[in-house]
Computed example of a mutant assay.
Amino acid sequence: MENIALIILCAFLSGSTLFIGAGLAYFFEKWFKKGALKVQIIHTSIAFGGGILIAAVALVLIPKGMEALPVIPMAALFLGGAVFFFFLDRYLEKKGGAFSQVMAMLLDYIPEAMALGAVFSADRNMGFLLALYIGIQNLPESFNAFLEMRTGGYSSKKRLILFLILSFLGIAASVSGYYLLSDHPKGTAALMLFSSGGIIYLIFQDIAPMSKINKNWLPALGASLGFLFGMIGLKIMG
Rank of each mutant, 00 (worst) to 15 (best):
F86E: 10
A68N: 15
V60G: 03
G81W: 03
F86R: 00
I54G: 03
G50I: 00
P70T: 10
A55Y: 03
F85D: 03
P63K: 03
V83L: 13
E67P: 00
A56W: 03
A68F: 08
G80Y: 05
F84H: 08
I52A: 13
A82K: 09
L59G: 05
G80K: 06
F84S: 11
F84P: 01
F84G: 09
V57E: 00
L77F: 13
P73R: 07
A68I: 04
L69G: 09
F86Q: 10
A55V: 15
F78H: 00
V60H: 03
V83N: 05
V83H: 13
P63S: 11
I52N: 06
P73M: 05
A76H: 15
L53W: 02
F84Q: 10
I62F: 05
A68V: 14
L69K: 00
P70G: 13
G50Y: 02
G50C: 10
A82V: 15
G80I: 11
M66R: 00
A75T: 15
F78C: 01
I62G: 14
P70S: 14
K64C: 01
P63F: 07
I62L: 15
V57F: 04
L77I: 12
F86H: 09
A82L: 14
F85R: 01
P63V: 02
F78T: 12
L53H: 07
L79W: 07
L61W: 04
P73Q: 03
